[in-house]
Amino acid sequence: MSHVADFLTPSDLQRIGNLQVFARQVVEGFCSGLHRSPHKGFSVEFKQHRPYVPGDEIRHIDWRVFGRSDRYYIREYEEETNLRATLILDRSGSMGYGANTSKFEYATKLAACLSYLMLQQADSVGMVTFDTEIRRYIPPRSRVSHLKVLVDELENGKTGGETELGNVFHDLVPKLHRRGLLVILSDCFGDVATFLKAMAHFRHAHHEILVFQIWDRDELDFPFKGWTQFECLERAGIKHMLDPVLLRQAYLENLEKFRDELTRGCRRHKIDLVPFCTDQPYAEALAAYLSRRLALK
């Protein structure tokens, strides 16, 4: 059984904890269009029955079930919030890049951080992991204990396979039958147009979207020197031998173009595109982003 402390250091938790108050405001702010009065609409929703155990309050026993089955069952209710957040975590091969901390590790920490933060606020948090297809879907729950489920999934996650953001996201739309907040943690590599189409699909389903784009510094600066063989993380057998110094300029231009297209597309769809680099402390980077959101609010 994994524990959240495996992902988040005490100082990270402290830092996120400090952010709790304004983070909640921010999160609430995001979802302000979802419910007209988030606090008034607070209610309970039947979730499941479970056997009575000593210590449970007598008033929670479902007497109708007792009448039919002659057994004590406790009627469990799920608290309904105004926020249903789904963390969509890319575990494709390209996310495995990184010397000390891979992009995937970084993304998992961010995901853990967000999960903790939102569950602390009693919001529902769900998670989807994918590479070429959806690998796991954990529906949003608001219980604190749900964090363990999420953390377990984060810990067990491994990278591999190609990125197919467009198709995966299109497949995901029907599963997310209730509108909510989608937080995509990915490097967004692949065809920008397909990605943006998928984003448009999400937006059409009235989802709010946050894209946390994860970069490694090498991908941003391309600092390699000397003859280098580049081997593809996603497709085995793809190799390129070259002198990177001669390509650096062109690579950086191409990178700029890619990021421009992505940024413009996200702006068009009113999506926050938040780049993170694995050499930044994730807690600080997250805090900085949230602070900025707060300032804009």
């Binding site: 091969g93 390209s94 996310m95 495995g96 890049y97 992009k103 490097d187 590599f189 692949g190 490694d216 090498d218 991908e219 390699f224 000397g226 003859w227 280098t228 063989q229 580049f230 081997e231 593809c232 993380l233 996603e234 497709r235 793809i238 390129h240 031998m241 390509l247 690579y251 191409n254 990178l255 890619f258």
Partner: peptide, 14 residues
């Protein structure tokens, strides 16, 4: 004596 870099952003490089 080349180095090997297992590279993620191959779509940018290619």
């Amino acid at each position: 004596r080349f180095k090997i870099v297992v590279w993620g952003a191959m779509h940018l490089l290619e």
